[in-house]
Nucleic acid binder design. Sequence first.
DNA 1: ATGGTTTTTACTGCGTC
DNA 2: GACGCGGTAAAAACCAT
Length: 326
Amino acid sequence: MSESETRIRSYGRRTEKETADEQSADETTRCPECSGQLVTDDEHGETVCVDCGLVVEEDAVDRGPEWRAFDSAERNSKSRVGAPTTKMMHDKGLSTNIGWQNRDAYGKALSANQRRQMQRLRTWNERFRTRDSKERNLKQALGEIDRMASALGLPKAVRETASVIYRRALDEDLLPGRSIEGVATASLYAAARQLGNPRSLDEFTAVSRVDKMEMTRTYRYVVRELKLEVKPADPEQYVPRFVSRLELNDEVERQARSLLRGAKDAGITSGKSPVGLAAAAVYAAALLTNQKVTQSQVGEVADISEVTIRNRYKELLEVDHDERRN
DNA sequence: ATGGTTTTTACTGCGTC
DNA sequence: GACGCGGTAAAAACCAT
């Protein structure tokens, strides 16, 4: 019997006798105390002398390389668990699989009946496997959505919409090649805008685990594939938050809104960042109502440069003056 | 990739407190 | 002198093509 055949056979079922034979054949594995025969005790991971019971080698477990990647953030961290994972498979190759060969554990061919049964098992195994992984995927994504939503102070309705969007993305197989966090962030961003509760991209990147580039790329992709209708954010929607963060009163808010409407009618808003417009309107409104806020304060809460505020608010006041004249 | 537009960065000067 | 504001030029970011 050749070497390779022995290995194949013992792979299936290794008997005590075979193990002992292998050991005795190797002259270098003798007990250092009594020169008795050594056997490996797989169960305890030890090498033991059959005569005196001396444990020659303890903990003979394969420590090997360490692999694990639960999420992208932890991709580089290691742990002593399992086989190498692969991102090529949606479950990272960790789930059970049923072999395709119609043979039993001893290599005997299966009967026709057994074969049919195995085929059914494979089918169902496949179904559960993909379903389970989607469930897990969804669970993680929803957790992520929840986390970001509360960090951004988004209402429940937005989270729900976001989770619906995410579910659709998952169902339409938009996930492969994209990170869960990325799609989750994109879903929430889209949902927030759809429900008229927008947050700027910058605000999102502050709380999301993905960077701006990936976020916008994924967002565009999701919107396109899902044919979501997301209208450009209305600058007015940012006003209340800026006003309250700056601790200004309702008068400012109303003034800012009217300024923005005037600007919209005058057609000077298109192409301009809604956030910048809103920030400028708030600043201008504060000026008009004699409340002191500096450009830098507004820029701070709106995450907009002072220059932009200056440029916008000049335009806002211009159209405001024109309107008053007419 | 490219070009046009918008926003940001960095710097400067002016007036006020 | 620090601060708020206004302006400008050049760089960077963004977007449609």
